[in-house]
């Protein structure tokens, strides 16, 4: 049979030589393309960020908590061998839920907190373990003060994220692809954080609250993951290694 007479019938179980050659070529191209394509598309991905989280490494911390302007723990001591790279941490629950309700009646009290550390460049979030053992009364705390430094009115440009995913629970945990997840997290009570910088170069995660420290989760949902600019009063809670809090009117948020 000459090449022109060749004809392929799949069910016949025979592949004419000309068809076989092209099939082998196609299979080779496919397999090489799979290798090159996988490597190339991965190589084009953006750095997922420096967040870390070991969900199996539970730590116990002693300090004091406040429920507003967000569930914040000022850390006085770490029990055991653990180490925390900041003086203050935001508290969240497992899943996509906040923790404000779990510390609402303990404002200013010395507490013992059990959870796992989520850390991105010193911005620390603690995911509380489930159950009542997550936050218990402590007999004493080293420092009864709750230092707050007023940094004045600042204009910050950046992106509203949910701090749990952004800090390392999900990598990457920012941007449009993550928008729906962040909306779910904020809807579940996780305190919104504005990641960005102000006009003076102050960079970081600004815990967002209303002018009186009230939660504004529902009012910022439509701006999540968008590049925004907003002005508000900025405070630093817990000293130099503490956490930045920004009190804003959500109506003043503008997309860039």
């Amino acid at each position: 049979m000459n090449a022109a007479d060749e004809f392929y019938i799949g069910w016949s179980g025979r592949t004419p030589a000309g068809y076989a050659r092209w099939s082998r070529l196609a299979a080779s191209v496919l397999i090489v393309s799979a290798l090159v394509g996988g490597l190339t598309l991965l190589g084009a991905q953006r750095d997922p960020g420096p967040g870390t989280w070991d969900p199996n490494a539970t730590v116990t911390l002693v300090g004091r908590v406040r429920a507003d302007p967000g569930p914040i723990l000022l850390i006085d001591a770490v029990e055991g061998d653990g180490r925390v790279p900041a003086r203050a941490a935001l508290l969240v629950s497992t899943g996509k839920f906040g923790a404000a309700g779990r510390v609402a009646n303990m404002t200013g009290d010395p507490v013992r907190v059990r959870g796992t550390l989520i850390n991105r460049g010193g911005f620390v979030v603690i995911e509380l373990v489930d159950g009542a053992e997550a936050v218990t009364a402590a007999s004493s705390a080293g420092n009864p003060e709750w230092p707050v430094e007023d940094l004045g009115i600042r204009t910050v440009r950046g992106e509203i994220v949910d701090p749990k995913c952004y800090s390392g629970a999900m990598k990457p945990g920012e941007g449009k692809v993550h928008r729906a997840c962040a909306v779910r997290c904020l809807s579940g009570g996780i305190t919104p954080v504005l990641v960005g910088r102000d006009e003076s170069g102050l960079v970081g995660g600004f815990v967002l609250a209303g002018p009186r420290g009230e939660a504004i989760n529902q009012r910022v949902l439509e701006f999540v993951a968008d590049p925004i600019v907003v002005a508000g009063r900025v405070e630093r809670h817990g000293g130099p290694d503490g956490v930045l809090v920004m009190r804003i009117d959500p109506a003043a948020i503008r997309r860039q």
Partner: peptide, 13 residues
């Protein structure tokens, strides 16, 4: 094989 190679290359790299 192509699927496994693609996913392996993507995940491995």
């Amino acid at each position: 094989a192509s699927i496994v190679i693609f996913l392996g290359a993507f995940y491995g790299l």
